[in-house]
Design a protein around this nucleic acid. Sequence first.
DNA 1: GATAATAAAATTGTTAACAATCCATATCCA
DNA 2: TGGATATGGATTGTTAACAATTTTATTATC
Lengths: 239, 239
Amino acid sequence: MSAQFDTTADTVFSEEEVLRRIEQAVLDHRLAPGTKLKEVQLAELFGVKRGLIRKVLTRLAHSSLVLQTPNRGATVARPSVKEGQDLFATRRVIESAILETLIAKINDLDLEQLGKMLQREQQAYLSGDSAQALSLSVDFHRELARMAGNGVLETYLNDIIRRTPLVILAHLGDEAENRCRNHEHEAIVDAIRRRDVKAAITVMNHHLLQIESKIQHKSERSHTDLASLLRPESILHSE
Amino acid sequence: MSAQFDTTADTVFSEEEVLRRIEQAVLDHRLAPGTKLKEVQLAELFGVKRGLIRKVLTRLAHSSLVLQTPNRGATVARPSVKEGQDLFATRRVIESAILETLIAKINDLDLEQLGKMLQREQQAYLSGDSAQALSLSVDFHRELARMAGNGVLETYLNDIIRRTPLVILAHLGDEAENRCRNHEHEAIVDAIRRRDVKAAITVMNHHLLQIESKIQHKSERSHTDLASLLRPESILHSE
DNA sequence: GATAATAAAATTGTTAACAATCCATATCCA
DNA sequence: TGGATATGGATTGTTAACAATTTTATTATC
């Protein structure tokens, strides 16, 4: 398992660092849904006490990336198709509200900032650095939320963003190219620039529905595979 | 402080029970915003170990009812006016989405259930049991969320509902009658019955804006009181 | 008397040892 | 053999003692 985290035995990590690394391992699919997360194992791996791992696992459980069961420890969450659908449906609602709030108050400085972010995204994409491009495309959504200035909406969007990769990976595997399309981000900024709430929301929803539809499609296919329905523990998922 | 919780020394409490009681004390205004929550004190009070109190405080912090500061313990949260506004604005968004989702799928059985809830609310109100009436009026909102069937939306609404009393109390004190008006709940159910999404949302927003406007009004008054602006620790708030 | 430095007390944070629970394997009995 | 029942090891959960930090009280100095 140590291969999953890229640690050396004698380094020590802070709580935040441990959290970040486990989260990243989950989201990068290096830890499959259902994988058992043993406390001592992780503690030794990161060179920290078990108590710290305990805290981290509880925090991860709270953001729905990990499932904690009393007396039976923690496993990587295994979100259902339904949960994925609910998550995306809610995301459309939240992102729409963010756009509406943002457009009511945006200034030229903010618009300039968004323009810069689009450029950086484009640059990363063109230079073939797809990991960086993905990261920047997520940042774009986060930045809209920040600029909108509603802390509660921002928290909820961040929660959803944190959970999204696991939902996608759990149901699409590595098949899908799930990166946001850059030209759609541009279209959103265009609409914001024109203060056109309706257009912005339309583009955003289209944008989000693209990914969503892939999951939907995949889950329909899965349902025709009767064997996998009867045997919930797929061999793909280490237990 | 023991008077705040209504405990006797020799009873023991489960984690859930301790959580519920502290939460209730905060929401009932028996513990003012800013009040220090000392671990040993609470542990002795409930007859539990300090570790359990620790867990509970962390959970309360996560739902924004308690503020935890490293090495300095926990205090009852002191939500800002801004946070209250953001919370209400988000609530309108979430409740609207719930109504839209619900109307698309509601059946006669659900409608019957809602009708029964309205009756019970009305009954409690008429019989003068205002605590019960308040509780049932909150249940009404929760029930709409449950029936809508989107788990993520439901979670977010419950989060907001949990935080709302503290926001109201922190800025309105005990001045306000904040109970939902029963006839507005009836109007919402009417609109749902007619599958009229727009009307339902309009009534709901009106409903929520009523409470919100009271906070707004109060906070404007506060701002004219310069002394309280300069001295953030009001004498009303125990520290 | 106000301010700064110091010491003591109170409070939070951590940990290692212990307890309780779960899980896989072995054992027993029909 | 099949299936229930013990058994031991692994794992999670709890706690009491200790450590670190903050807060309060005391003293010293101007």
